[in-house]
Structures are given as C-alpha cells and as structure tokens.
Write a protein that binds this DNA or RNA. Structure first.
Length: 514
RNA sequence: GGCCCCAUAGUCUAGCGGUUAGGACGUCGGCCUCUCACGCCGAAAACGCGGGUUCAAGUCCCGCUGGGGUCACCA
C-alpha cells in the first residue's frame, strides 16, 4: 500500500496540504504502507524553490514525515517533477502513437476567441477539438514549419466513466462533458494530469487520496491509465476545508498558511488533532487524541464526506487543552523554540534598544513581537486617517494585504516591503503620510513602534498579513463613538490571546499606563 | 449555465429502521475562588422541504431546495 502527498510549490505551505497529507499518512501507517512526498513543480512560472522548502519545513513541523521524497530519495525517484520532464515527454509520445492523444497547434488567441464564441452560443467553453482531426500530412507540415504545439488528451467522445470513490461510492460522469485536456504544454512541461498519472503509476501509488476538487477530472486520469494499459489506483476524495461562509478555504477569509499557525503559537500536534476532527470521528466522544491513537483506530468508515468549516475558535480551545496538560519544562522549551529563542530576541534588541532606558521596559515594548493576533478595540480611531472614512481605510488595508502577497512573494525584506508599500500608495492615491500610520497600528497595535518595515520583517510574513486583514475587518464593523479621544502614542493596544479578533469592538476603554 | 459532490443546533460531529436525537466548540446561567483563568454543574440550540418504501424513517429510494466544487498551456 503506497500513498502520496503531491503539493505544488507555488505559495505558502497550505493548511489544506497538511489536511490531505494527514489522512494519507494515517492510512499508510495504519496498514504499514509508504507515504511519499512528491513535488509537483511543473508550472515553471509559479513554482519556486523557497516555496518548496517552506512546504517541506511545514510538513516536518506538523510531524508528518515521509518515507520517500526529494530530500531523502527512494526507489522510484526523482521525486521532483521538474526532474522528470523527459519521462512525461516519452509518455506523451506513447499516447500519440496509440492515438490517445494528439498535437494541437491552436494559439492561445484562437482558443480564447473560440471559447468566447462557444460561450455566446451557450455551449460549454471547452476546446472545440479542431486539431484532433488534422491529417497526417498537415501535422507533418506544421511540425516541419516549426509551429508550436501542445499535446492534448483525445478524450473518448461517448460513454461514461464510472469509478469508485472511497468516501462516496460510485461516481459516474459522461465522457462527452470532459474536455480534451492539455497534457504537455508548449514549453515541454507536463500539466498536472499527465505528470500525476505517470508518476502515480511509476511510483506504484496504490491509493490516490486527494481533495474533492479533483473529482471532476478523475475521468481524464482514468482515460490515461486505460490508454497506457495500466490499472488505475483506488481513488478517495477528501472534502474541502471551508471558510466560515462555506466557500473553499482561502487566505482572504481565513489564515491558510501553516506558518501562520506556527507563528500564532499553535502546537503542531493540536493542529493535526484539529484537522483530524474535520471529517474524522475518533469514537466514544473523544476529541483529543494523538496521531498514534488516530492511526490505531483509523478506518475510512469513520470519515465523513461532509464539508467542514475550519473554526479557529475550536482549534484554539483544543490547543489550550494541549498547553494546559503540558509539563512546565516542556512548555518552556516550546516557548523557547517559538519566540523566546536567543535568535529571535537578538533580532528584536537592535529594534528596541534605543527606545528603552531600563530593562524592565523591554517586555512591554516588545509585546507585539511576541503575540499572535492583536486587539484593536483601543486604537480603532487612529486606524482612520484624517479626511478618510473607515471604509476607505479598511479597503486600503485589505488591498495592501493582497498587494504585498503579490509583490513581496520572493523575499519578505524591509526593502521589498518599503517599496511595495510606497508603490501601493502611489497606485491608489494615498499619501504615505496618511497610510503608513494605519499600517503601523494594524501591525503593532500602537502608534509608536520601531521602523515599520523592519518590524514587519521581525513579526513575519504570515502574522503581519493576518493583522492587516484583521484590522481591515475590524474597521468594517467599527462604530465610532461621538468624540473619540486620540490615542496617546505610548498606549499599547492590549494583546489578545484569542486568534479570533472581536468583530464588534467594545467601547474604547481607558488604556492603562505601564 | 452544464457536469459532479455535499446536507443532524451558529460551528465540528455521533447516529448506520424503533433513541427523551448523544458529545464537543461557541453562547448564556450557576458553583468553585482574593481576582482572572482552569475546572465542575446546568440551560438554550439541530434531523432543509416534499413525496414514496415500511407496522415504524434523521437513518432506505426519488424529486426539490440550499450550499459547494469544476469547467486554464494552475495545480
């Protein structure tokens, strides 16, 4: 029995990856199988090494160790798809030879135009299969003319594909509704569909346990297995994690980066336990259990296909259970591994040293470096610059968060942040003077702080972005008191232990002076 | 919109033809207590709707509704 987790290194390590990895891992360990990590970096424009590193680091952090992978190797490597391109090209050729795939010379312009035309006619927007029926001569001629092409799957035009989903039972999909998927892109790299099937077969994966969003493309994959003459693996689609509004979990509505959970002070074992609760019932009303215990009792009949909403509050409660039961020495070492490490404190000292005169001022001055989410209830008014309203301020902070997401992808550095923030102001017509203060308040909860961008670096990408979103959100529901006194620069916002920021801010309380 | 998936309290879930529909988060109330927290006790809160099948339906079947996913040279 062999299973795999196959993340695409195109962004932050995603909580959904950990979720799927968890169930693969548990299943593998339950039955003495292997758990494989395969990096699906076939998108040359979006894949990055830093994302790959982050994903592996995060997966190790949660404690899901793989038996085979790009770092530790294994009998069926390499485990990074970018190192296997030749393999996919060979297999694409096999499909062409068998008539199960064909070259398509259509330009993206033509595809776009055809898509629009089909939409206008009320037809589904898929490929119109123009190149599927090209004559041998024409193909040869266009090849020798050096035209660029992709290789598409010649999907059966009739009949149905039936398969058994381990969680839902029989699923039946009409072949005619499935598009002739691109298998090999014009840059020579495979798409997910080809690479995935070829690798799963070559790596002897027996059970494909992945997210629900893949159900619809399963017929494509089965068509590929059949065309190659291979036996398809067993399929099992886990439900998608949800935002509170039930849409697929996303960074705008919920923290999704595993690094956020780490930096916000969650324990990996608590996160894993919580993730198990998303669909899995231990039995006997037990909610707290270890990975080992889960493996012991695991069975797919205990997993439901419902669509679970990821509830930060319940995760926090569960984390508290772990924390309360932890021996003091253990908790101390966890704290040290977290933000009380020499490394981290040493990073803060240069930022804070000039701003304090006695050692006792260090902890209060550093508080926002050492917390997760911030409570803005005491500083709401100063989140809104003069001459702007709270909607504008909220929108600016929310848009800035997205903008940083885009612009500071390749390195969360002070220089990059400053440039991005300044560019953002220029683009949106905000003065840096008016917007930088709300940003500072959002990030630190205070009007006075060390230099903003260095501070953002020290706080870290995920916590910073979370706070910006939180502040934007708090502004949305803020109702200003008649006369809001300005917050004194030395007044720290109270750090809030719960990750869920209070949506309705209580009336600003007088801030205590330290 | 086509296709596919899902459906027990606000949220996570138990239930697998006969239950006062169980547990947990959250909420509210109380106890404990120098405060707070923890802990303990209690309360409110759910089978989406309509048809079947059956002596009996949250549980099986069909339809509807609702939600979601997917329709890329992204995964």
């Amino acid at each position: 029995m062999r299973v795999r987790i196959a993340p695409s290194p195109t962004g932050d390590p995603h909580v959904g990856t950990a979720y799927i990895a968890l169930f693969n891992y548990v299943f593998a360990k339950k039955y003495g199988g292997q758990f494989i990590l395969r990096i699906e970096d076939t998108d040359q424009t979006r894949s990055t090494k830093s994302s790959e590193d982050a994903i592996m680091r995060a997966l190790r952090w949660v404690g899901l160790a793989w038996d085979e992978g790009p770092d530790c190797g294994g009998p069926y490597g390499p485990y990074r798809q970018s190192e296997r391109t030749e393999l996919y090209q060979q297999h694409a050729q096999i499909l062409i030879d068998k008539g199960a795939a064909y070259r398509c010379f259509c330009t993206s312009e033509r595809l776009e135009a055809s898509r629009r035309a089909r939409m206008a006619e009320g037809k589904p927007p898929g490929y119109d299969r123009l190149c599927r029926y090209l004559s041998e001569e024409e193909i040869a001629q266009r090849l020798s003319a050096g035209e660029k092409y992709v290789i598409r799957l010649a999907m059966p035009l009739e009949g149905k594909t039936r398969f058994f989903d381990g969680l839902r039972g029989e699923i039946e999909i009409e072949n005619a509704t499935i598009d002739d998927q691109v298998l090999l892109k014009s840059d020579g790299f495979p798409t997910y569909h080809l690479a995935n099937v070829v690798d799963d077969h070559l790596m002897k994966v027996s059970h494909v346990i992945r997210a629900e969003e893949w159900i619809i493309s399963t017929p494509k994959h089965i068509a590929l297995y059949l065309a190659f003459g291979w036996e398809p693996p067993a399929f099992l689609h886990m439900p998608l994690l949800r935002n509170p509004d039930r849409s697929k979990i996303s960074k705008r509505k919920n923290p999704v980066s595993l690094d956020y959970y780490r930096d916000a002070g969650f324990f990996p074992e608590a996160l894993l336990n919580f993730l198990s609760l998303m669909g899995f019932a231990f039995g006997g009303d037990r909610e707290k259990f270890t990975l080992a215990e889960m493996i012991e009792v695991f069975d797919w009949t205990k997993v439901s296909a419902g669509e679970p909403v990821f509830d930060l509050q319940k995760l926090t409660w569960l984390n508290g259970l772990y924390l309360h039961e932890m021996p003091p020495e253990m908790l101390l070492s966890r704290l040290r591994a977290w933000r009380l490490s020499d490394d981290y404190l040493l990073q803060l000292i240069p930022l804070l040293r000039e701003r304090i005169e006695r050692m006792d001022q260090f902890i209060p001055s550093a508080s926002f470096f050492l917390t997760g989410d911030i409570d803005y209830s005491g500083v709401m008014a100063s989140l809104i610059p003069k001459g702007r309203d709270q909607t504008q301020a909220s929108q600016a902070l929310a848009e800035l968060t997205d903008y940083l997401e885009e612009q500071v992808r390749h390195g969360w550095t002070a220089e990059a942040l400053e440039k991005a923030c300044r560019d953002f102001c220029e683009k949106t017509g905000w003065k840096t003077k008016e917007l930088f203060m709300p940003i500072r308040i959002a990030v630190t909860g205070r009007a006075a702080s060390p230099p903003l961008f260095e501070t953002m670096v020290a706080i870290g990408k995920d916590l910073t972005r979370r706070r910006l979103r939180l502040a934007a959100h708090a502004l949305l529901t803020y109702s200003a008191p008649a006369a809001q006194p300005a917050v004194s620069p030395s007044a720290p916002a109270q750090a809030h232990a719960k990750p869920q920021a209070p949506a309705k801010a209580p009336p600003a309380k007088p801030v205590s002076s330290s």
